[in-house]
Design a protein around this nucleic acid. Structure first.
Lengths: 245, 245
DNA sequence: CGCCGTGTTGATCTCACTCAAGTGCGGTGG
DNA sequence: CCACCGCACTTGAGTGAGATCAACACGGCG
């Protein structure tokens, strides 16, 4: 699970948008980190914590979530290998949502102090991380549209499209197939629908011949139709590499 | 409309979280800017634009929005005086949503080049702006929960609570009353519901004695009940100052 | 073996949508 | 000064997507 080169996937993504100098890369790679393992549904960061470290996903998945009084939790984002799940902890005093492991997950903790030091020294890295924050914000915007204006089947289709695209960026969705240790309940909580309805929608996606999906393993059979159903436009993931600032 | 001291409200907010040095404040105030006026529904930044400037709201309101094929637009955020509406344009090549004026609005454009120069020179300001990005991201997370897990009346109540709190931070919601030049259609598009239903929900809020609301002017009559109805928890706005409310 | 978590199915209910019509007000032009 | 227009708001009726409740099936695990 990439323990040998923990920063490789993060680098892959940071560099997609802007080249980093060799020095900057080295500074990043030299950051001290502490590896930790979590099992399914373990809480990595609790709502209200004031953390002194950032959490980099090495293997597996994290998700952030928040719940309100009477209803089920809402999952507000997924984090895939190479993502930093709590960049917000770096400058905001409290984390305003819980972060948990979707399944068995390997993470690396980086102390804020080391990060501050490196970022103060390197404007290039500071920019890269800020840009990372902006990209996560763009994903949130897209989720707002997803929850506000798509019906259930399009919502789930959109989540699949996004996850596929994000996993492809870090080399984890070859042939449009990938493994996620989620349950239909997790999918429901990310889509803002009930578990029962998620089940019916997933069956429909299967019957339409769009995906093979046995809970943990997803294989997209008809990418174009899925994209059309979801009105998925990958631009917000900044995946096209024509950007040159 | 604060033309004389265009940065005062932004400063007010930036300083709420972390003091800025006198030098930094001066650097901010000295940034060159170009004032512009927009009328209701005018588009300030178009989807797909690659902008070379940031947009600071001086008076009035902006909102960002995105629409997908078959449905109405979804409003993804509101921007009040003192907010920078397109911080993302600073580091992402394209803006992934439209930004428009809610009603007559005064904005100031700041060239990216000047901003880059200032931020490279001042780590304190760079931090402050990054933190600003993080706060906007926290608001987006909250909107995700709002759209995913609240029913119509709680959604609208939550939007009212958030707007009240944010306007109070910049001194624009004294006595829990404020003016927003929105229509019920705008409220519907922010809540992910239909205009007809928004109308019925707003009537219900009035009948419950929670608000006086004649479209452009909102006065909260029963803050505590509104907060309870919305499950509003202002922590995510980093507004440690609840005594204000 | 029995339990629990996950997935599946059916029946019923309800919140919110759509369609359609009507009201009221502010602005504009005759 | 009034008639008209257009936009925002309001109301009613019928419909529908998705929620809730309640079983049941299946497989892994203690």
């Amino acid at each position: 699970m990439e323990i040998g080169r923990p920063y490789s996937r993060l680098l892959l993504r940071l560099e997609r948008l802007n080249a980093l100098s060799l020095d900057d890369k080295q500074r990043l790679i030299d950051l001290p980190l502490k590896i930790a393992n979590y099992s399914a549904d373990a809480e990595v960061v609790s709502h209200g914590d004031s953390s002194s470290r950032c959490t980099l996903v090495l293997g597996g998945f994290l998700y952030s979530h928040k719940s309100i009084a009477t209803s089920r939790r809402q999952i507000t984002s997924f984090f895939v290998p190479g993502d930093v799940a709590d960049l917000s902890s770096f400058y905001l005093s409290k984390v305003e949502h819980g972060i948990s492991a979707l399944g068995p997950t390997v993470v690396a903790f980086v102390p804020h102090s080391s990060l501050t030091e490196v970022l103060d020294r390197s404007p290039g890295l500071a920019r890269a991380f800020w840009r990372e924050t902006l990209m996560q914000a763009a994903i949130s915007q897209e989720w707002i549209v997803n929850l506000g204006r798509r019906d259930a089947i399009a919502r789930i289709a959109h989540i699949l499209c996004e996850l596929t695209a994000r996993l492809q960026m870090v080399g984890l969705a070859r042939d449009l197939a990938f493994s996620v240790p989620w349950t239909q309940m997790d999918v429901a909580d990310a889509s803002g629908i009930s578990q029962v309805h998620a089940n019916r929608v997933i069956q429909e996606l299967r019957q339409l011949g769009l995906v093979e999906w046995d809970s943990k393993h997803v294989r997209i059979k008809d990418w174009d139709s899925l994209v059309r159903l979801a009105s998925f436009d990958s631009d917000y993931l900044q995946s096209s590499v024509e950007a040159d600032l």
